[in-house]
């Protein structure tokens, strides 16, 4: 379970202080599929960075699985990312010189999973996302949709408690985008907690709950059945 209470984030830009998040209160239950919508500059990326333990809030409290994250060291944040968080990015962010298999193995390598076990799990994950025949391919030999599937397999490698996706269909065409969204829906069906950041209402609609963020504050919430 994720509990955010009064999360604020301020940056200093020269003399000025810019408030990007102005007191976010949000609870996400285990197994929920939540989308966060908002125009650019609304603070949704910053919110995702904080949720993904890439950044610390200026104020407030962030409870992840009962642990307080807001006051952690950089090393502890890296460990939290390794064990609890899986990232899926708009531009896939695969390492170009590594095969699909190696890319999926990478988070397990940092988590200290032994080689054979790692290789086996990475192969299984690639089969699960439908890339069983692309295991040895380099990212350059894969289509956009295939790259995003590798990225999803990689995000799932350490069995994270939270899957964070930042505009996962942003660089894909309509058809491929909906394939990827179907994959997210399937993952949600199997019990994965997913937080999706998007500015596209049709993508946000795949989630059961949509949070609308404007100017660093939550201004609306929609729950679907």
């Amino acid at each position: 379970m994720i509990v955010l209470r009064g999360i604020t984030k301020r940056y200093r830009a020269g003399e000025e202080t810019i408030s990007v998040l102005r007191g976010i209160d949000l609870t996400i239950e285990d197994g929920e599929f939540v989308s966060i919508m908002g125009p650019s500059g609304s603070g949704k990326s910053t919110l995702m960075h904080i949720l993904g333990c890439l950044d610390l809030p200026t104020g407030g409290s962030y409870e992840l699985d009962g642990m307080e994250v807001a006051k952690r060291s950089k090393r502890e944040l890296a460990e939290l990312r390794s064990q609890y968080i899986g990232f899926v990015f708009q531009n896939f962010h695969l390492l170009p010189r590594m095969t699909a298999l190696r890319n999926v193995e990478l988070p397990m390598m940092y988590a200290g999973v032994p080689r054979t076990k790692r290789r086996q799990r990475a192969t299984e994950l690639l089969y699960e996302v439908g890339l069983g025949d692309r295991v040895r391919h380099l990212p350059t030999a894969l289509s956009g949709g295939q790259k995003q599937r590798v990225a999803i397999a990689r995000a799932l490698a350490n069995s994270p408690r939270l899957l964070l996706a930042d505009e996962p269909t942003g660089a894909l065409d309509q058809a491929t985008g909906s394939e990827i969204m179907t994959l997210f829906s399937d993952l949600h069906q199997s019990g994965m907690t997913i937080v999706l950041i998007t500015h596209d209402p049709s993508v946000a609609a795949y989630a059961k709950r949509t949070i609308v963020l404007v100017d660093g504050s939550i201004v609306g919430e929609e729950v679907r059945e």
Partner: peptide, 16 residues
């Protein structure tokens, strides 16, 4: 730089 960012997001510590 971006590779470093990706590795960090995947759980690489500073030491790694």
């Amino acid at each position: 730089t971006q590779e470093i960012g990706i590795r960090m997001s995947l759980g690489a510590t500073r030491t790694a």
